[in-house]
C-alpha cells in the first residue's frame, strides 16, 4: 500500500502543474495556439509508443510472476527497461532539435511551460526506471514468487502512473491548439 502514497503525491504535483498550464494558456491564447506547430510531433509520438509498450511489458511481467514463471517475468521487465530508456534518448535528440531551431526555455511562455512539465515528467520516469532496474535484479535473484511479488507490482503501478501523466502531456503540447 505504501506505493500509493508516492503515487498520489505525484498526481497532486502534476495536477498543480496542469493547472499552471491552463492558467498560462488562458492568459496567452496566441502562444498556445501556435506553440505546438514548432514542436516535433514525431518525438512526442515515439515517446508515447515507448511508454505504452513498456507498460505492456510490465503487465506481462506481473502476469508471469503470478504463474511463478521467473525467467519470463525477468525478460518482460528487461524489455520494459529497454523501452523505457528510449524515452530519455528521444528526449535528448528532441531537445537538441529544439535548440537548433531556436526553441529554448526563453522562446516564449508556451515553451517555458513545455520544458518545465516535460522535464519534470522525465525526472519521475527516471525514478521509475531505477525502480524497474531494482525489481529486475530482485527477480533475477529469485526474490519474487506467485505468493510474494508486491514489490514488483508496486514498481509496475508507479510505471503505469507515469504513463497516465504522459497521456495528458502529449496532447497538451503536441496536439491541442
Amino acid at each position: 500500500m505504501g506505493i500509493w502514497v508516492g503515487i498520489f503525491c505525484v498526481l497532486v504535483e502534476f495536477l498543480l502543474l496542469f493547472i499552471v498550464y491552463f492558467i498560462a494558456r488562458a492568459h496567452n491564447p496566441e502562444a498556445f495556439l501556435t506553440g505546438p506547430d514548432k514542436l516535433a510531433t514525431l518525438a512526442g509520438t515515439v515517446i508515447t509508443l515507448f511508454l505504452l509498450t513498456s507498460g505492456y511489458c510490465m503487465v506481462k511481467a506481473v502476469n508471469a510472476i503470478r504463474c511463478d514463471e521467473h525467467k519470463a517475468s525477468l525478460r518482460w521487465i528487461l524489455g520494459a527497461i529497454l523501452l523505457g530508456f528510449g524515452y530519455p534518448i528521444v528526449k535528448y535528440f528532441e531537445i537538441r532539435w529544439n535548440i537548433a531551431n531556436g526553441i529554448d526555455g526563453q522562446a516564449g511562455i508556451f515553451y517555458t511551460v513545455y520544458y518545465y512539465l516535460t522535464l519534470n515528467h522525465l525526472v519521475h520516469v527516471s525514478w521509475g526506471l531505477l525502480g524497474l532496474i531494482w525489481i529486475a535484479v530482485r527477480t533475477g535473484l529469485g526474490g519474487y514468487s506467485s505468493q510474494n511479488h508486491s514489490g514488483l507490482e508496486a514498481a509496475a503501478l508507479y510505471w503505469h502512473t507515469t504513463d497516465i501523466i504522459w497521456l495528458a502531456i502529449f496532447p497538451f503540447f503536441y496536439i491541442l491548439r
Binding site: 510531433t41 509520438t45 508515447t48 509508443l49 505504452l52 505492456y56 506481462k60 496532447p171 496536439i175 491548439r177
Partner: peptide, 25 residues
C-alpha cells in the same frame, strides 16, 4: 486481451499524432 488493449492504445496514439499534424483549433 492484453495485446488487444495495447493495440487500442497504440492506434489512438497514431490517431492523436495525425490530429497533431493536421488539426485546427
Amino acid at each position: 486481451h492484453t495485446e488487444k488493449i495495447w493495440l487500442v492504445l497504440i492506434g489512438l496514439t497514431f490517431a492523436g499524432a495525425l490530429l497533431g499534424e493536421t488539426g485546427h483549433a
